[in-house]
Design a protein around this nucleic acid. Structure first.
Length: 814
RNA sequence: GCCGAGAUGGCGGAACUGGGAGACGCGGCGGACUCAAAAUCCGCAGUGCUGAAAGGCGCGUGGGGGUUCAACUCCCCCUCUCGGCACCA
């Protein structure tokens, strides 16, 4: 009896669609929002993409069967560089290319039998979606969270656009087929003020008990909160004051120089007319030409400004340097140099022969200032620090900070590594920034009623040249001021696609709403996301951004929760031949041909069984063989015995053989259920496989056998839904398992009547005995001591004690 | 440098809260069916020694120490792999 996946899978996909089984209940009683990260339409989808969707689908199908009203939507993150670059390569409009890919990919997902509510599909590059992306921008603007500033930004020469900090990895472009060395450019760009939310984004991580610790830790690192002290160093013979941030106020007596970032705006007035003005300007220019990576890799250097600052604690004069290892965007862009207690300052001091003054000694021992090989950076005891001598570092930090604060020369400060989110992109394929520049009125937001600002489709040249292509489209760029009706120009940039993806989960709740991004009623109904599933690579990008958006929308009163997702699951990647599956590497297994050859259920089982879902998995042909064999075996045994299936045994087991099978069935129900609750799909399938093997061994064709068949079919539906439904009707049921109640176990039969007790001597297994479940301890001990296998090791030895673990084992210690 | 995760047969992986290591699968070997092969079904299998066999004894979860009657699991040290952060003052 052959399982014909082609006709059977198509048949059930049609049945599910015709009967709207995945259509979301508009008025959920017991809601469950199951969300997989939406996708980039990057060409034909392959098995590497599918793991995410298969995991999400298992959950959706399992939850439906447990009485939940499941919202399980899908959509496309359709704007952005990859689509645009591909389109340029093959000379097709990005819109055409994108929509065509979406069409093909939708087909692939449908072939896999993923149970999406397709009526809620969203596509971010369509005006009815990006209208609301633009609305989000305006909301940020209204709330003072979108601002434009001239700043040093990351410029990707490959993509010919600026990038957000989150999109720079080790100084290179984050896009895997770009990876260009990032340059620094000073440009006037739009930012979202995510730093205003740094504290909440950090603190609220503690609320997210359903998120992996790893992701939370990565976000903590990324936000990078650092507590310390701000200290004001007045400049000698000037009224300029330099503020520095330090976490080591206890080392203030060891300051022997000050360094300023070359980009620091204070420099201009500081050096004007100074002795070394020209040298300093040359250094600044040189620094500006270097990439971030170059600046990091070279030896630390700088140039003396000829100016001195005064240490506020003791008035000592210290030289001011310009040095490009100081980051303008962190702290105040000025640091105090303490060579004795900071590795970088130490190197710098050696190079420029600056004094090294030891002010902290180890708790035990001393430091010889003459023979220091490197800085002493640990906490210790303050020395050479006047009235503060003898304090520990921790005490000293507190004392110095208080001292400075009382004198108005500084105070406590907190700094974050996270930077404001640069969202302008000099590219065509994105949502236009809804801002108008008027000579008279300045920056004017597009009125909400005029949204969307349509992205012109008819554009001759969208190839990036470092300037926004939209700037060269007169019909787009020229407009009138909404305020004064005078001539004005639109912002030529588009938004980072991560803006589009920061709020998409809300649009699914109300995808056709023309008046709001989502009605308050629907937000109330469905939020928060009960289970979010996606790749770990989004830990410090999307997963921070969408939390940020959620908080802003919450603050503005649009949604009732300030965290978007209760539970997060990060799935591992699919590898093939040791490398991430991808079309460009040539190791991709495309969905369409695979499903035609083997079937969707084989694909699903292969993915689910190979490894725990959170771990990377190697796609192997052997895994496919196993999945295929499993399906054939199930199909065969069910079809051959379909007349004998019962949905419940009519009598209790009559003998040990029946009881053994019945217990196994009940145990399997429990195991599969527990495993589904805990994302352990590989062991859930293993449990089903064990039961299947047991049924193959079972010789009688009684009710218990029939019930075993029933159980396998029933429990299989989240994993292999087509096969399960096909067999479900073949064993005499109507319709589909999609919304049938999940199978529950008979808890009276979860264990057998006898228990096996392991016999150990000194912790080594020497045998087992079978006893009745309620045998008391003394009896078991006497059985054990009488056992030949034990006696062999205990004869002529002294027994020290006997340990009995109830129902488990007995250990004789000699 | 800091933070995090991990290392188990030939391979993917299992093992509750410290209690029989290696479930389940793949591959392998043997058998049945077949003229034969494939498919299927049944069986074997961590490894060394020993035994005709049943079995017995030892060794075994990256390495070394420790706690314990008992350690893949807990503690200390080390090696390696992967991931994140990193000139952050």
């Amino acid at each position: 009896m052959e399982y014909n996946h082609l006709t059977i899978e198509k048949k059930w996909q049609k049945y599910w669609a015709d009967n709207s089984l995945f259509t979301t209940n508009e008025n959920p009683r017991k809601k469950y929002y199951d969300l997989v990260m939406f996708a980039y339409p990057s060409g034909d989808i392959h098995m590497g993409h599918c793991k995410n969707y298969v995991i999400g689908d298992v959950i959706a199908r399992y939850k439906r069967r447990n009485g939940f009203d499941v919202l399980h939507p899908f959509g496309w993150d359709a704007f952005g560089l990859p689509a645009e670059n591909r389109a340029i390569e093959i000379g097709l409009h990005p819109r055409k290319w994108t929509l065509e890919n979406i069409r093909i990919s939708d087909e692939s997902l449908k072939m896999l039998g993923i149970s999406y509510d397709w009526q809620r599909e969203i596509i971010t590059c369509l005006p009815d979606y990006y209208k609301w992306t633009q609305w989000m921008f305006l909301l940020m603007y209204k709330r003072g969270l979108a601002y434009k500033k001239e700043a040093y930004v990351n410029w990707c020469p490959g993509c010919q656009t600026v990038l957000a900090n989150e999109q720079v990895i080790d100084g290179h472009c984050y896009r895997s087929n770009c990876k260009s060395l990032i340059e620094r450019r000073k440009l006037n760009q739009w930012f979202f003020k995510i730093t205003d939310y740094a504290e909440r984004l950090l603190n609220d991580l503690d609320k997210l008990s359903g998120w992996p610790e790893r992701v939370k830790q990565m976000q903590r690192n990324w936000i990078g909160r650092s507590e310390g002290t701000n200290i004001i160093f007045p400049v000698k013979n000037s009224n300029i004051k330099l503020e520095v941030f330090t976490t080591r106020a206890d080392t203030i007596f060891g300051v022997t120089f000050i360094s300023i970032a070359p980009e620091n705006p204070l420099l201009e007035q500081l050096i004007k007319g100074s002795k070394y003005e020209n040298k300093v300007r040359a250094y600044i220019l040189e620094a500006s030409r270097k990439s971030i990576v170059e600046r990091e890799e070279k030896e630390k250097d700088g140039v003396f400004t000829g100016i001195y600052a005064l240490n506020p604690i003791n008035g000592s004069e210290v030289p001011i340097f310009v040095a490009d290892y100081v980051l303008v965007e962190y702290g105040s862009g000025v640091v105090m140099g303490v060579p004795a207690h900071d590795t970088r300052d130490f190197q710098f001091a050696l190079k420029y022969r600056l004094p090294i003054k030891v002010v902290i000694r180890p708790e035990s021992g001393d430091i010889d200032p003459e023979n220091m090989a490197d800085a002493f950076v640990d906490y210790g005891i303050m020395i050479n620090s006047e009235q503060f001598n003898g304090l520990t570092s921790a005490e000293g930090i507190k004392a110095i900070t208080e001292y400075l604060q009382n004198k108005g020369l500084g105070g406590r400060a907190v700094n974050y590594k996270i930077k404001d989110w640069l969202i302008s992109r000099q590219r065509y394929w994105g949502a236009p920034i809804p801002i108008i520049y008027c000579d008279k009125c300045g920056i004017v937001p597009v009125p909400e009623g005029s949204l969307p600002v349509l992205l012109p489709e008819d554009i001759k040249d969208y190839i990036p040249k470092g300037k926004s292509p939209l700037g060269a489209v007169p019909e787009f760029i020229n407009t009138t001021c909404p305020n004064c009706s005078g001539p004005a120009k639109r912002d030529p940039d588009t938004m980072d696609t991560f803006v589009c993806s920061s709020w998409y989960f809300l649009r699914y709740l109300d995808p056709k709403n023309d008046n709001e991004f989502c009605s308050k009623a629907n937000a109330q109904k469905w939020l928060p996301i009960d289970q979010y599933i996606g790749g770990i690579e989004h830990a410090t990008g999307h997963l921070i951004y969408f939390r940020f958006f959620t908080k802003v929308l919450y603050d503005a009163g649009y949604i009732p929760y300030d965290e978007p997702a209760t539970n997060l699951f990060t799935q591992g990647m699919v590898l093939r031949n040791g490398e991430v599956m991808s079309k460009s590497k040539g190791n991709a297994v495309p969905v369409g041909p695979f499903v035609e050859k083997y079937g969707a259920d084989v694909a699903r089982l292969t993915i689910l069984f190979a490894a725990p879902p959170e771990r990377d998995m190697e796609w192997s042909d052997e895994g496919v063989t196993g999945a295929q064999r499993f399906i054939d075996r199930v199909y065969r045994i069910v079809m051959e015995n379909r007349e004998r299936v019962v949905n419940k045994p009519s009598v209790p087991p009559q003998n040990d053989i029946q009881k053994k099978l019945y217990v196994k069935i009940n145990q399997t129900i429990v195991r599969v259920t527990d495993d589904l609750e805990n994302f352990k799909f590989n062991t859930a399938i293993a449990a089903l496989w064990e039961l299947l093997n047991e049924l193959y061994q079972y010789k009688e064709r009684d009710e218990f056998f029939g019930y075993g068949i029933y159980a396998i079919v029933n429990l299989l539906s989240p994993f292999a839904p087509h096969l399960a439904d096909e067999l479900w009707t073949n064993i005499g049921n109507k319709g589909s398992l999609v919304s049938a109640d999940w199978l529950s176990c008979d808890s009276d039969y979860l264990t057998e009547d006898k228990m096996v007790v392991v016999l150990q001597v000194n912790g080594k297994v020497r045998g087992h005995i079978e006893v009745a479940p309620n045998t008391d301890e003394e009896k078991i001990k006497s059985f054990a001591l009488a056992d030949e296998r034990i006696r062999r090791h205990t004869d002529n030895k002294q027994i020290k004690k006997i340990i009995y673990v109830p129902g488990k084992l007995i250990n004789v210690v000699i």
